[in-house]
Simulated scan of single mutants.
Amino acid sequence: MILTERQTPKGLLVSVCDRNVLGETFENGDVSITVTEEFYGGEEADESEVAATLARASVANLVGERAVALAIERGHVDETNVLDIDGTPHAQFLRM
């Protein structure tokens, strides 16, 4: 997976995507997401690194089967809140 961390005034913003979706655009009706290098590009990370970062995140954006499945498995995202955009899972969470 590709992991990016950004410290913001409101906390840690994390973006995670599966490597195979980086640079792709997915559309489903009025919903569209482009997995840009600018936002999602970062360092290659394994599941334990991503899990540790998600545990510290205030906000997270996730795209791809592995990234979203890990967030669900670790209890950060409820499976019913995952969007399917052109067959690709996308989820976000905000921790308050």
Rank of each mutant, 00 (worst) to 15 (best):
E79G: 03
E27Y: 03
V14D: 05
V50P: 11
V35A: 08
V21N: 04
G64P: 07
L22T: 11
D30K: 12
G41L: 09
G87V: 13
M96L: 07
S48L: 08
F26H: 04
R56I: 12
G42C: 11
E24F: 01
P89Q: 02
V50F: 12
E44S: 04
I33M: 04
V77K: 00
A45S: 11
V82I: 08
L83M: 12
G41M: 09
R74Q: 15
T80H: 11
V68H: 00
E73V: 07
I33Y: 04
S48Y: 14
D84H: 09
L13E: 01
G64W: 01
R95Y: 08
A71R: 00
A71F: 04
M96A: 08
I33A: 05
S58I: 02
G64Y: 01
Y40I: 07
V82S: 00
G11S: 12
D46R: 06
S32H: 11
G11P: 09
T53K: 03
G11V: 13
S48D: 15
T80M: 08
H90S: 05
A71P: 04
F93D: 00
G75E: 15
V50S: 12
R66G: 09
V63C: 08
K10S: 04
P89S: 01
E47P: 09
E27Q: 13
E27W: 04
V77R: 00
T4F: 03
A60W: 06
L13V: 06
E49D: 14
F93E: 00
V59M: 12
V63Q: 10
R56F: 14
H90L: 07
I33R: 01
P9K: 02
L83Y: 02
T25N: 02
E49H: 07
D78E: 13
E49T: 14
T34H: 12
L70V: 14
L70E: 11
I33P: 03
G23F: 01
T88D: 02
I2M: 12
D30C: 01
E43W: 05
V50Q: 11
V68K: 02
G11N: 07
Q92E: 01
D18W: 02
M1F: 04
S15W: 02
M1S: 14
N81R: 13
V21F: 05
A51G: 13
F93Q: 01
I2P: 03
N81M: 14
V14R: 06
F93Y: 01
T36E: 09
D30A: 03
N20V: 12
E5C: 13
V59F: 15
T53P: 02
T36M: 06
D84S: 14
T36V: 06
